[in-house]
Design a protein around this nucleic acid. Structure first.
Lengths: 341, 341
DNA sequence: TGTGTTCTCGTAAACGTTTACGGAAAAACG
DNA sequence: CGTTTTTCCGTAAACGTTTACGAGAACACA
């Protein structure tokens, strides 16, 4: 069934070296014999054994994506990543690279799994997501000299790796601008705890925009909770207990927004009427929720493609003639106005 | 950096054969030397090179999951699969297996990608989803003698592979029973076109239940459309044009239901008031839609775990002492009553 | 014809494992 | 003490590639 390079050689009565060179498009092989090799490869249904190539070349031709389910996602995971993965995979496939998706158990920090991937040389590079402000995964990879790229920025790693991130800072500021223009002055911000980096970026933009409008940043209107529905549900009442409660809330995450809306509903507060609600990262849930949530939308699939390009461009073996380059990009989020603000 | 089995051997001044046997827990190695080997492996930070093992053993220690994005999923893909993948991956990891996620472009039938995985021996087995009634992927894999398991049943392949499916037939019947008990007699069914197998199963259950209640099956109340929101939007008006329009609609897919509800809204028909709406496979969207959609919920993560077990049990190399077994299971869907019916 | 160059190909080593085989040493047994 | 068994380990081949090296043949040129 599985025909090897030896089979081709025997069939054509030439050496395996010549077969290999012919298949790999090397120059030092007669045009005629190359034709015969390619033809035999087709008829004998040959395709190269990956393990053999990997062993010899020291490259696995696959990239690992570390997908970390959120703790508390009992039923449904992270739809956010699917379109990103589609883009990533499509671009990698163009270079003959496979995508390995490595998942940790919800809540574990992946160090263990990451280590395994690196040490067993299962992949040629990894892609990280949910970057933290200080990210030990990044420290580990840079220290190990292992190629990687990140979806999201981090303070770790001395910027020596490609990264693609969304402009949470601008989105936070845009959200404030919009709410202020609509007459709001008491604007709350709810973001994830842990030290997920985008939470900080969002908050920076939020703070700066408030100051720009001459509005004092009130710590009572800023809260952080677990990055899931329960977290939003739990933490939203905190900002509502302020002496001067908010008239608008910006949520940094769709799940937290949904939990927050539930809490609001129980207080008799209707988003879109009694409270303006804005969500920073749009998902289908925002669209179908009632009222439909105004949110900032990322271009996930193109981002996946782009990060694949950036990752490959950073690896000498894959970079083009102009040599490896480290790129860092920040992409905009697009406002989708709906009914909740 | 990367220490090999030779490094260990040199360091301990023994042969690589002994090192390998010690690491693999073979019997013919002195307990003392084994200790020393394991210790050296730890201090030298050894971990086996996967390519080397794969090449020698003829096994890659990874399983491929073929994820096919739906055509028309421009923005967000298939959240359905994430929890399934989590379960699958967790179970595979217990046996030291990695999960490779292979995606095709939306709309292509994966034959090409599947072929590549099989022929380059990138994975030891594959997991298929979205099984069709007659499925060429299954035909190909059985004919190639490549191990695989499916999420979903099919007519293809002579049942010689493990499969795990949801009981769409019973869910269809249960949905009818519930609606009949609530006084409905004109019940429509909307399912995906293509020949996705679960659409047929659902329709079988629907028909049988209607007959059981002495209700004639009216072809005008059955329609099929593309399995996305646009499909539901397009096809729902068809059943509404019946001389005797339905008072209830069962949708076989969440996205189609959302599109259908949009169409209904444009006709001034309110789900939960003027029309009972039931969805067969629950997703978070059903829960957050307004009105919240009554739906049948699968236990996705356990299903992923189970299918991993079943797949491994079917492969001689991984099956336990009792030898390989082909299992086929059908799991129930649990009704989640909400506001739409 | 002699020399140098260019094409083309075969040989063999190497990548890091696993494992069948055999042999030396130790232990057991008579 | 001789023989058999057991324990332990080294040797070497094998998995399927890629590639450095060298060599033979053909060719060009003087």
């Amino acid at each position: 069934m599985a025909s090897s390079i030896h089979d081709l050689a025997r069939h054509l009565n030439i050496s395996i070296g010549t077969v290999s060179r012919a298949l790999n498009g090397r120059a030092d092989v007669n045009a005629d014999t190359r034709q015969r090799v390619l033809e035999a490869a087709r008829t004998l249904n040959y395709s190269p054994n990956q393990s053999g190539r990997s062993l010899r070349q020291g490259a696995t031709h696959s990239i690992a994506f570390m997908l970390q389910p959120h703790p508390g996602d009992q039923q449904y995971g992270e739809p956010f990543f699917i379109p990103f993965l589609i883009g990533l995979q499509a671009k990698l496939a163009e270079s003959g690279l496979d995508l390995i998706v490595v998942m940790g158990a919800p809540g574990d920090y992946q160090q263990e799994r990451l280590r395994r991937v690196v040490e067993t040389r299962r992949a040629d590079a990894v892609v990280l997501a949910w970057t933290r402000r200080e990210d030990e995964r990044i420290d580990y990879l840079t220290q190990a000299g292992f190629p990687f790229a990140t979806l999201g920025r981090s303070r770790s790693g001395a910027k020596s790796y490609p990264s693609l991130d969304l402009d949470f800072e601008k989105a936070g500021a845009d959200a404030v601008d919009r709410l202020v223009a609509r007459g709001h002055r008491r604007i709350a911000a709810i973001r994830p705890s842990l030290n997920l980096n985008f939470g900080y970026l969002f908050l920076d933009g939020y703070r700066k925009a408030l100051r720009r409008h001459g509005i004092e940043v009130d710590p009572e209107l800023i809260a952080s909770g677990f990055i899931n529905e329960a977290g939003g549900y739990e933490v939203t009442p905190q900002v509502m207990r302020s002496k001067d409660p908010p008239t608008a809330i910006i949520f940094n995450n769709d799940a937290m927004a949904l939990g927050g809306c539930k809490a609001l509903a129980e207080m008799g507060i209707r988003p879109g009427h009694d409270m303006a609600v804005t969500v920073i990262v749009d998902t289908p849930l925002c669209r179908y929720f009632s009222p439909a949530l105004t949110a900032f939308r990322p271009a996930l699939e193109p981002m996946g493609q782009r990060l694949a390009e950036m990752l490959l461009a950073s690896i000498p073996a894959f970079a083009g003639p102009e040599g490896p380059r480290i790129m860092r990009e920040v992409w905009p989020l697009e406002l989708v106005a709906r009914d909740s603000d």
